[in-house]
Write a protein that binds this DNA or RNA. Structure first.
Lengths: 110, 110
DNA sequence: AAAGTACTTTCCATACTGGAAAGTGGTTGT
DNA sequence: ACAACCACTTTCCAGTATGGAAAGTACTTT
């Protein structure tokens, strides 16, 4: 019934939302897509890892180190629950916010 | 493109969402519905008033003072924009979050 | 050897939050 | 009249979180 504070913080919400859409995302891609600094992404990425929501993989591309982020199952579940909670909070407004399957747009989206 | 921080804070999001559904709501009703303390509702209500999002009306019911909150037009617009921004942020996930008209539920809601 | 890449950590200064408690202005009870 | 209560409002406080800047780490490239 609460809004998971790990996910709710704007920067982390954006990170998680982005990861929810992708299999795995590179550090630099996430950083540039969201327009955050290295230090912020590093710190928030670690926060999500500590919460068990994101898996951080380190590897190489050629000889250059790279870092990838990926949502864990738990992270995906937490995100889903978060979105459901948001809906419950926001929906009394009469704006009926619903989730639907991919590729099946509802009529008259905003 | 940003998530309005005035609305994003969990307590205020709940207040605004509740007010978006009602014409006007009593202080005690909001406080008890959200389960917050007097001081928190008073402070966050003022914050929303200072932002121009909520109108605070004081009056009497019999001889007892009462306070009502009501979203201003600006507050409603800010809330609508906030929800739209959330959708943009969350939607890359493949969970397609849309707004629709009242009373026209989408197929297969979660 | 110097410079660069890809982050990570530390430092810092600034918010923001909520709970507790005290305060305000008026009303009810004895 | 005086204490107690109601409906909030304000003040006090203490803990948490954030982000930017800058320094640090561990290579690799020039």
């Amino acid at each position: 019934m609460e809004l998971d504070p790990v996910i709710h913080a704007p920067t982390r919400l954006q990170i998680v939302s982005l990861l929810a859409a992708a299999e795995e995302a590179e550090f630099a891609f996430v950083r540039d897509t969201l327009g955050v600094s290295d230090s912020v992404l590093s710190k928030q990425g670690s926060a999500l890892e500590n919460a068990g929501y994101v898996h951080v993989r380190k590897g190489y591309v050629g000889k250059r180190p790279k870092t990838w982020f990926k949502l864990t199952d738990r992270g995906r579940a937490a995100f889903t629950a978060y979105v459901a909670n948001l809906q419950r909070i926001v929906s009394p407004s009469g704006l009926n916010v619903v989730q639907e399957e991919r590729g099946q747009p509802a009529g008259r989206p905003l």
